[in-house]
Each structure stands twice: as structure tokens, then as C-alpha cells.
Design a protein around this nucleic acid. Structure first.
Lengths: 334, 334
DNA sequence: TTGTAAGCGTTATCAA
DNA sequence: TTGATAACGCTTACAA
């Protein structure tokens, strides 16, 4: 009772393994009659392709690796899920690697993925620049970077939400709503996207002739207890602060709680806007305004572009910007 | 500049491929001198194992498949992440399959996973019972079910939070806090775990001599708009309702919003408890009491048990219950 | 302790 | 239109 192989199919349908292979892959020529016969036997026996053998032979694994910092973060999970969906539709399976922002682990994963012969790689976010280590020039694996600056842009495709635009618009919105002292709240562990958001914030301030200085950015660290203390200190030093653009929704919500505890009224005294538009934004008090990323488009672009890159390895060097949308809710109301 | 193989290593270090293989896998005998020599060459050349070849030969893939309904759900993502971590530490990589609760997709995934020769499977949640279709008796793949009743418990290991206990305790808590008419809010698409929670709710009512009838369960459907209407109808019919145990946090939060809109005061008029204790519980208004699942323990148990099962395929039939903890917050305060 | 060689399930080349 | 066969990179008897 062992697994049935092409050889068995060949024997049962009275043709050679070569023919069976041709039928399965629909390449080369064979008669309609043969095709029917073979497919029938395949159906009956419940034959399933041994992908290891196929991969070994063809050097194509139909497997894609995804490097992601933290799959329990909604934004990442959502993107990954959608990428996985698209890839599966096209016959690829996906190995998801949760790096936990650990560089060593990332290297280990890369090694294994290479050993498994992945056809391509999608790298999502991260603090440092990403470059694939092609030492000794093995098979070059095409890769796509999402929200993570590649070291050498000519080697890959860079896909990113337009973080700059999002932060810029959100900041202008705060100003328009009357915030005289808007700040940007960001984690000290800074990702590529966070840096870009900061730039957007800064430029929006400039455009409206606000000064950007140490009173304009609130740097935070985990855990929440530390964040609370840092926030309190900041507000003691800069009590005039009346608008916050947070680098993501989690930070925004944490700040909401902290500000409540400090007896600030949101949005009356301080207006808050987050980033990512995760589902939680609807359930906070008050509901949180946020910059929505188009995860569907990001995922779709990434998946399709990678597949394209696999076919045409040298068409790299592009940077694709995905527009974002500011969603206004109670936390930034007038 | 092609990929280096055992053959190259053998040539470069002046031994046979067999010896190289022995050194790599540290099995069989070889002299210390040989070992050093071979490892040096491996190091220098940056050799990486071709896993397809290894898998083909040994029929072991060091790959585990995880079937999960929805990776953007925090509870699932958290469990998956932790399983993945443990498995990677032990040299396994993980193919995560997001089934989207689609039975056809689940079957397709199963086929591919089988073709890729996964050594084991972890199946998380889902509406119907799970049984692996071993038609034609291929290689039997050991699998673990988390939160999803296996069709035949003797074939697998069933791991689950103690949903019954959680629901029972939460219900008792509601009663203890003075709720005279507690209800259970659940989605119409009912999972194994939801059914068990309902049972716990029911038994707690019985214990305290409350009657369980159609006024005790609020059945809901997505999307939120529909949920709102269903809730309003329910409260028109049963206005005495003053306590809610929701089948998960998302439902609980949705209800919180709906009840606010209906001008109910939480927790004064209605007390609410959720399930899962996702991070959002801290940011809702009021903060949500919830039954916390021990994801770390679930994940760890699942991973280790599966690895054990791979070594000892016939030690199946266990059911492992993981205790849960009721976390009390504002939404159920007196 | 080490080497030789068979074989895992495919695909692809070459002949028929 | 088909078939025989080599090759992919690795492990593992069996020999030496």
C-alpha cells in the first residue's frame, strides 16, 4: 500500500513514464486517447505528484518564502494572508517565516529557504536595509521588498504604501482641524516606513510654517509602562501639544489610554490619528482616525510582481508606491 | 558558478560523497581528521543542503503543514506564530495554509501538502469535524487537531483550551455579579469550540437554577450591520437581558458598540465578557473582560506532541485540555 | 574508517 | 505520437 508514482500510472495505463509525465504537465505531444486513459488511471489511483522529485529535477520548487517580522501584527497578517491567497491560486505554496525582528533568525531562515529551493522571496518590513547575500554566486533568488528599503534597489522591486503621503495628509488634517502643536509619536526601533512617515510629517509642518524641533517628536519604547512615563515627561515639557500622529494604531491606542489617565479629553483637547487602520480603530474610545493602507493592492502587486520576476529575472529596479487613504473618525473630530 | 553539491565537496576534500554525507549528518563512522577536512570545505564553499534531494531519498521533509482558518485573527496568528517558532528551533519549517474556512481550498491544500511530503500536520479550528482522507492508503501523515473535533479521536491528538471551563466560569461570574438574565452571543457559523463554550454556559445556568431557553442565546451573522439589527430585535423581545458572554472578543466589541448606540450603560445595565483576551480588550470602552487562552501552552503542546507523533506514529488517541483564565476588566465590573 | 553504487520520482533528450 | 534512459543530489547497504 505505498504511494503511487508515475511508474505505477504508466504500468496501469499501458504507456511509458515519459508519456505519463507529458500528460500530467500537458507538454509535448500525445493522442487524445492516451490523455484520457492516463488521466482516468490518475483519477482512480488518487495519484499525487511528488514535488521533491519534481523540484530536484527541474530546479523549480513552486514555493515562495515570506519573511515577516511579526505575524500577530494585524497589518502584516493581512498582507501575508492576501499574498498567500494569490500565490496559491497560481500554484505556489508559501513558507511563512516569522523573524521576530531577530537578524540571526532571519539569516537562518534564508539558509533553509535557499536549501528548499524557493523560487522567490518576499521580504516585509524590518529595521535595516535588506540585501540578499549571494556569496559564492549560487542560484540567484528573485525577491521583493515590502516596506523595507533594499540595499541595492536595482536588484529587486520595492513596494511600499505611500507612507510619506499618508503622514503628510494626516498632519495637514490635524493642522486644518486647528492643532497648533502637532507631534509625531514613534517607536525608537525605527523601520523604513516609520522614517518615511516622519519625513512626511516634517514636510507638512514646514509647508504650514510650523517649526520642527525636539518638541515635535515623542520617542517611545515598549513596554506600555515605559511609554506612559515617557509620555508624561513629554507633556510636562511640552504642555502645549494638542495633536498627535502616531506611527501605528497600537501606539495610538496606547496613547489614548495614557491620555485618558492624564485626564485629557480626546478629541477636544488633543486630536489623535493612527496608522494602518486596523479593525480595532472602530472599537476604541473614541474611535480612532487612521491612515489606511491598501493591503489588497500591496499583496496583489507583490505576488504578481514576484511571479513576473521569476520569469524575467532581470526586470528589477522598480519602486512601486501604493496610495493610502485617511479615514477620519471621532478621535480627530473638531 | 552553480550551486555546490556533495559531489563537489567530496572532490575538493578528497573523499567520497558517502563520507561527506556521513559527516554532514553525523552518522556512521569517520575519522576526526576527515571530519575537519570536510567541514572546512563546506564552510569555504558555502555549501547548502539540497532538501529536495534529501526528502526524495529519505522520505522525510522536515516540513510541517499548518491549516488555519484565518491568519488575520489574533488568536490564530498568535498560536501559529508560536508553533512556528518551536518547530523552527527543532529544524522544521512550516507551510502555513490559510483556508479561509473554504472546504474546497482545504482539500486542495491537503493534496499539495501531501505532495510536498510534509512530515506532519496541525489543523486549527473549523466548523466540521476533521479527518484525513487516507484513500488508497498512502503514507500516513500524523496530525494534531487544535480546537477542532477530529472525526476519529483514536487517529490523532486533540488539543484544546478548556472552553467549557472558561464559559462556565465566565457565566458564573456574570451571575455572581448580579446578572439575572445572562445570555450567550454566538455566530451562526459554529465551530467546535463555540459549541463547547455554549455547553459550559448552559451548564452554569443549570447549576444556578436559571432556565436555558430561546431567550438565552443571541445568534448573530456577519456583517456588523446585520448583527446590529439582530441584536436590536433580540433586545426588543428580551429586554430583561443584563449580561452577555460573547463567543469571542470581536463579537463582544461589536456588541459593545451596538449597545452604546442603543444607549445602554456598560457595565451598569449590561455586563459583557468576551473570549480570547486579544490585545484589543485593553483599548475598548470600557476595557473588556475576557477568557484568556494560554496560546503559549497550546502552541508548545501541539508542536512537541506532533514531533513525538512523528517518531511514534501509533501513540495517538489523547485529548489534552489547556486551562484558561478569566481576566476581569471594566466591562463586567459591578 | 572509507568507497562503490543503487535508487528515491521526476523530467528531458534522443531515438524510434 | 511514443519509449528508453540519463540525470537531478542525496542517503545507505554492502564491500573493501
Amino acid at each position: 500500500m505505498k504511494k503511487v508514482s508515475v511508474k505505477d500510472i504508466a504500468a496501469l495505463s499501458g504507456v511509458s513514464v515519459a508519456t505519463v509525465s507529458r500528460v500530467i504537465n500537458n507538454n509535448g505531444r500525445f493522442s487524445e486517447e492516451t490523455r484520457k486513459k492516463v488521466l482516468k488511471v490518475i483519477e482512480e489511483t488518487g495519484y499525487e505528484m511528488n514535488y521533491s522529485a519534481k523540484t530536484l529535477r527541474t530546479n523549480k520548487s513552486y514555493t515562495i518564502g515570506i519573511l515577516v517580522p511579526d505575524i500577530s501584527n494585524y497589518f502584516f497578517a493581512d498582507v501575508v494572508q492576501k499574498i498567500e491567497f494569490t500565490l496559491f491560486e497560481k500554484g505556489y505554496s508559501t513558507i511563512i517565516c516569522n523573524t521576530g525582528r531577530d537578524e540571526k533568525k532571519e539569516m537562518d531562515y534564508l539558509k533553509v529557504l535557499q536549501g528548499k529551493g524557493v523560487d522567490g522571496l518576499i521580504v516585509i518590513s524590518g529595521a535595516e536595509e535588506f540585501s540578499f547575500d549571494y556569496t559564492e554566486a549560487k542560484k540567484e533568488i528573485p525577491y521583493i521588498c515590502i516596506d523595507r528599503e533594499p540595499k541595492d534597489k536595482s536588484q529587486t522591486t520595492f513596494i511600499s504604501s505611500n507612507h510619506y503621503q499618508g503622514a503628510f495628509e494626516a498632519t495637514e488634517q490635524l493642522i486644518k482641524l486647528g492643532c497648533t502643536h502637532p507631534i509625531f509619536a514613534v517607536l525608537n526601533r525605527k523601520s523604513t516606513s516609520a522614517k518615511t512617515r516622519l519625513a512626511g510629517f516634517k514636510d507638512a509642518l514646514n509647508k504650514h510654517s510650523f517649526t520642527f524641533n525636539e518638541a515635535s517628536v515623542l520617542y517611545l519604547d515598549n513596554p506600555p509602562a515605559k511609554m506612559k512615563q515617557q509620555t508624561q515627561t513629554f507633556f510636562t515639557n511640552y504642555p502645549e501639544t494638542n495633536g498627535i500622529l502616531a506611527t501605528n494604531d497600537t501606539i495610538a491606542l496606547e496613547l489614548l489610554n495614557i491620555l485618558h489617565a492624564m485626564n485629557y479629553k480626546i478629541p477636544e483637547q488633543i486630536k489623535v490619528i493612527g496608522f494602518d487602520d486596523s479593525p480595532i480603530t472602530n472599537y476604541s474610545s473614541p474611535p480612532l482616525s487612521s491612515v489606511q493602507q491598501d493591503t489588497a493592492k500591496i499583496a496583489d502587486t507583490a505576488a504578481n510582481h514576484l511571479l513576473h520576476l521569476i520569469q524575467h529575472p532581470n526586470e528589477t529596479g522598480q519602486t512601486l508606491m501604493i496610495p493610502v487613504h485617511l479615514i477620519l473618525r471621532q478621535s480627530s473630530a473638531v
